[in-house]
């Protein structure tokens, strides 16, 4: 399985695909994309890496157990909803602020929510694929 070409390719593909996935995530609010598709792409990146380098290696590159990603994702989504309580708004009320970094960037709790979705999807997909592949 572990051909040289594949392993070399995936090593470079991983960051590229991850970048793509983040793009899909962040622009999902305006064009097709979003947390789910972004998450799947990111997971696919790691899955490919696992095919090339083995699951062990992929787990190492991921740094953390997929389960933790799921937990963090759910937590992010939950927090994005709970933030509204602070300003006495109902749960999951979208709150927006504009951040002017290099470019003007609108930041809101729905974006945060989508990040949560993204993390959960990555975690779930990898947890399933790793479990099945390791068997």
């Amino acid at each position: 399985m572990t051909s040289l070409i594949l392993s070399t390719a995936t090593t470079y593909l991983l960051p590229l695909l991850l970048l793509l996935s983040v793009y899909l995530l962040l622009h999902g609010h305006d064009v097709p994309g979003g947390g789910f598709v972004g998450g799947v792409v990111a997971a696919a990146a790691f899955a490919l890496y696992a095919i090339a380098h083995g699951v062990e290696e992929a787990r190492r590159v991921l740094h953390t157990h997929p389960r933790t990603l799921i937990g963090l994702g759910l937590l992010t989504a939950l927090l994005s909803g709970v933030i509204a309580f602070v300003s006495n708004e109902p749960f999951l009320k979208g709150l927006w602020t504009t951040v002017t970094l290099p470019v003007e960037w609108k930041l809101g709790t729905p974006t945060l929510f989508d990040v949560g979705v993204y993390l959960v999807v990555v975690g779930v997909t990898l947890m399933i694929i790793f479990s099945v592949a390791e068997d």
Binding site: G28, H29, D30, P32, G34, G81, L92, P110, F113
Partner: peptide, 19 residues
Amino acid sequence: KGRNVVNVILVDFRAFDTL
């Protein structure tokens, strides 16, 4: 504040479903 209506439904209007 979103142009993609479907995505806005998913993360805002009906984010509860997505949760």
